[in-house]
Design a protein around this nucleic acid. Structure first.
Lengths: 356, 356
DNA sequence: TTGTACGCGTTATCAC
DNA sequence: GTGATAACGCGTACAA
């Protein structure tokens, strides 16, 4: 059934080595093939429809041209999390451009805690040349395993503690931007809804906010709400129960989803955004353009971060060494309607054509 | 560096065959290994940290436990298309549950037309045991190639014309439901915004609408708008320019994105939905819950369709044959606010926790 | 340019 | 019933 390189060689009256050299361009050093033989080989290959056996090639060369993509969730790879989607977009764009393929891995098994479960990491195996780890668990098994077996890897959104190559955004600075913006609009009672305690981005985001408030001479006010929209909604409801003079006039949420939850609570009480309460989020996924009103938020260049991580890994695999090991990308503030600083018309939907 | 099965055999005073049989359970028929030897082998393997070489295994067995996932877009795998996201979710859930891995492929090269470009389909190769093709191009190279090299495949959202296993939704019936619903609400001037002409779902959706209208004694009214939101917006603007007595009182769009575009146009003119014009979409991606007002739409069980396609492929690989080759899943109507039949409160956001 | 050993797990063949 | 030996799959790369 399968037609091999030896079949081609036989038909072309040549050796397997000559066929290999011919069909791989002249990348193979030291082997010369004459034009006549070359042509016979090409014809023979086309005639019998030879397709190289990728697995055999991989075994012989020790390279697969596949990079592994480790995602943080179990039962859904990207779920409806805009963050993972956009990160994957950037990563895959770069992977495809470099003529690699991507193999998907999930970090944890169906059951068990993401931080401790044995997981499918055994499958970090010889089929991939390297791994891009998206938000790997702290001091996780995955990173340790990659290090043990010498698997090259780059982590996306993981601080330096575990070593290795990393790509991050400047969370601290982003929080400063958000707080400064709200202060500049005249807000003083600004509450920060912080993210999950175990997330690596939570501390710097909290710190940036606190430092900015303190430096301006105002009291920081932090409430933990998690990254889920429901947390933002629940916390906001409690805040709306406060007497008007104690209520926050502005909310800086740890991410866009949490901000949306807060907005829901505010609208449910018949208050308006940004007139009664201003809102600023964090991440600037496309999701931020779909809220009502559109969300002012700290922009992380998520697809670019993913692309950079993939680029770094591929460079590493190509033997390049002259790139920084720890990259921190700058953030900025995207001002839309939810903060009251801007009344620009809504941006068009970021969706592309849907073929269905 | 790499520790092989022969290293384990040497250390355990056993043969590679015994090691192989031991570590693969007793799946290997014909080879019996005694308990003592068995234990020595396990100890030895654990001691030197043996990990099977997946590529070599794949070469030896001819199976990789990897299924390929072919997606329709080039430069972005899922882009922000809710449809692809949800389909992938279902597919990957099933792939993971069956202890397979997924390898990603993109249908077309950076340049070139999706229908003709040579594409990366050459990479439909020995590294995967089978392919799930999401919306493969009509009579495309990809399907032909799979057939030529005997690669098992299942297509998702592709009619029967190309043969092979397919999973589809009942587009025709979905359109009937939508039209019937609007008729039952008293609408008579119902316009259908149809999708891209070359999409396989366009014709049945159009037909279901037309048949229903005709059967009820009313005139079908179809305008091509494509699947993009911008098409829906543009067409709707023209419709709003008509004299009131000629304007549609209801719009049935070929998908949710198109419906959203129409809603934008309506709101931009200061009209209200559903009071001035009622809207019904098609697909019921999570996106439909985020429009203002929430969209009444025909529900396709997209993740389930993806899961089923993956399940069928895996069954096929396992040698099962007792399943239908052409599956058409039923659709239903999800009634929300945009059609005026319902004033239920908005559903909670479908997003899970975002870890960032 | 060619012959052939090699990478590594599997499995058919053969021996105790 | 236990287990070892060797051929095999297939492209690559070095020695000849």
């Amino acid at each position: 059934m399968a037609v091999t390189i030896r079949d081609v060689a036989r038909l072309a009256n040549a050796s397997p080595a000559a066929v290999s050299a011919t069909l791989n361009g002249s990348r193979t050093k030291g082997i010369r093939v004459g034009d006549a033989t070359r042509q016979r080989i090409r014809d023979a290959a086309a005639q019998i429809g030879y397709v190289p056996h990728a697995v055999a090639k991989s075994l012989a060369t020790g390279r697969s041209q596949v990079i592994g993509l480790m995602l943080p969730y179990t039962d859904a790879f990207f779920d409806k999390n805009p963050f993972c989607q956009e990160a994957m977009n950037g990563i895959l764009r770069e992977v495809v451009a470099a003529h690699y393929n991507a193999m998907l891995y999930t970090a944890v098994e169906e059951s068990g805690d993401p931080h401790t479960s044995p997981s499918r990491i055994a499958e970090v195996d010889s089929r991939v040349d390297g791994m891009v780890l998206v938000m790997p668990p702290r001091h996780g098994e995955i990173i340790r395993r990659c290090q043990t077996i010498g698997m090259p890897f780059v982590s996306l959104l993981r601080p330096f503690e575990d070593g290795g190559l990393t790509v991050n955004a400047d969370d601290y600075r982003g929080s400063c931007l958000a707080a400064e913006h709200l202060l500049s609009l005249g807000h003083r009672r600004i509450v920060h809804l912080s993210g999950n305690e175990d997330a690596v981005t939570t501390a710097p985001r909290k710190q940036g906010y606190c430092d900015t408030m303190t430096a301006a001479g105002y009291e920081p006010w932090v409430i933990n709400a998690g990254f889920d929209w429901s947390g933002g909604q629940a916390v906001m409801e409690r805040l709306l129960d406060l007497p008007p003079a104690q209520r926050p006039t502005a909310v800086f949420a740890a991410n866009d989803l949490c901000a949306e939850g807060a907005m829901r609570a505010i609208k449910a009480r018949g208050r308006t955004i940004p007139d009664d309460i201003a809102i600023v989020g964090f991440d600037d996924t496309w999701f931020a353009t779909m809220t009502q009103p559109a969300l002012t938020t700290v922009r992380m260049p998520i697809p670019e971060m993913g692309a950079l991580a993939a680029r770094m890994l591929i460079d590493l695999l190509d033997g390049k060494t002259d790139f920084p090991e720890q990259v921190v990308l700058p953030v900025s503030l995207t001002v839309r309607q939810s903060c009251g600083a801007n009344a620009a018309p809504a941006a068009p939907l970021p969706f592309n054509e849907e073929k269905s």
